[in-house]
Design a binder for these strands. Sequence first.
DNA 1: ATTATCTATAGATCTATAGATAATGC
DNA 2: ATTATCTATAGATCTATAGATAATGC
Lengths: 243, 243
Amino acid sequence: MPPKPAAKAPIAKPLAAKPKGRSKAEQRAESLEQILDAAEYLFSKHGLYGVTLKDVAQRVGVHTSLLHYYYDDKRALFDAVIDRRANVTISRRVAAMEAYEAECGGKPTVEGALRAYLDPDLELYLGGDEGWGNYAALGAQISNTPEGGAVFDEHFDAVVLRLIALLKKAMPDCPDEDLFWGYHFVTGALMLTLARTGRIDRLSGGLCNSGDLPAIKSRMASFMAAGFISACESRKPSTRRAP
Amino acid sequence: MPPKPAAKAPIAKPLAAKPKGRSKAEQRAESLEQILDAAEYLFSKHGLYGVTLKDVAQRVGVHTSLLHYYYDDKRALFDAVIDRRANVTISRRVAAMEAYEAECGGKPTVEGALRAYLDPDLELYLGGDEGWGNYAALGAQISNTPEGGAVFDEHFDAVVLRLIALLKKAMPDCPDEDLFWGYHFVTGALMLTLARTGRIDRLSGGLCNSGDLPAIKSRMASFMAAGFISACESRKPSTRRAP
DNA sequence: ATTATCTATAGATCTATAGATAATGC
DNA sequence: ATTATCTATAGATCTATAGATAATGC
């Protein structure tokens, strides 16, 4: 491949003139943050294998070997990118679900449970912070990947199981399989949302916008709640029509 | 990265002993097919950048330069992998939607429209053909990728717009935005399904299975139809509750 | 004295091309 | 004569390491 593929090129402005007057701890923290930001951006665009350490170093404006000083190898850098923000989003969601569970007086609704799970996350990405946006897009990309599933398992299992428990409380008669499949549909939709590929923009002729998280936030929980409820009801006798 | 990352390693048995007695046309066709199969498999596991031409060549049991004989470069090979099967799935879906439109007597239902769109595709992947499975997983991976959106646009736009039109006929009062967002949710769920990452298996403790396409086929269209209908109804006056 | 950063470089790997060889086709 | 496949190799790029240099910390 003689000229580097264009898609891979968006190198960039070194983020800032090297700050000289900082303490070492500050400097370290700042370097790490810049490295993680650059890596997060690039990984979100091209994935683990589509990014080279040199790309990251160039974007930060440092030498490649500095990355090896902080991280053993590329994979460790990648994992650090994931880890950095995972706990933030997880604890926001857990907090929201706990709050909802407390306030619903033992009678959660499906939509309420889904909102507690989805909204804190969507709000995070809706804030317009570029880093969070890149993180979300990276997560979305990983989630549809064979290796990606496992990456998420360690981090997100607990939150998801909490959601499932809440949904079960809202629909005690619903078979567990249907809860899990419903969750599966929700996640798929959420991940495509976070990927913000711009496809829906082109498809709808500009009517909808990939980045319009508020539009999604206002629709998703109720859309999915209706799905859950219908799935649950169709399991009751004599409701099911032939397909 | 001294030892090649394990994930990248599943090279393989050369697919078949080189067949000697074939005509040139047959040999060409067979080589192309083997190359595309191998590339499809590997791309579906590691993505465009995670696969090297040598990996593909080794899997087929030929020399790397043969790939250059057939394809200009790696990207061309990748595109060929996508193209090979795209029209098959597209025309199946178009046919199913046309048939449904004819048989519904001008009164399509939301679920019926979704089934016409989803089922032919799910049946294709549900058949157990390894190649189709890999193709689906590759598509799923691409769909959540920045470059991926565009790859799909050229191929799938027409089918999707046809589905939207059918849905509009089923719900004439539904605002277009909601149709497009609903489609967006459906696709997200479908793509995660086709990715078959095994995440739902681990999450549900084995209760659900990533590869259990029939389970999804029986649930997805009705689940999503309920979502569409609820979204549409909540747009009518005085139905909407506060979130 | 410790830590952050850079220079230089080895070794591996990758893409792509040029040109040879071995089949089939006529 | 044409086409499929292989050998050999150039040139680029990538990861990772060793060791030098330049700051801050005490």
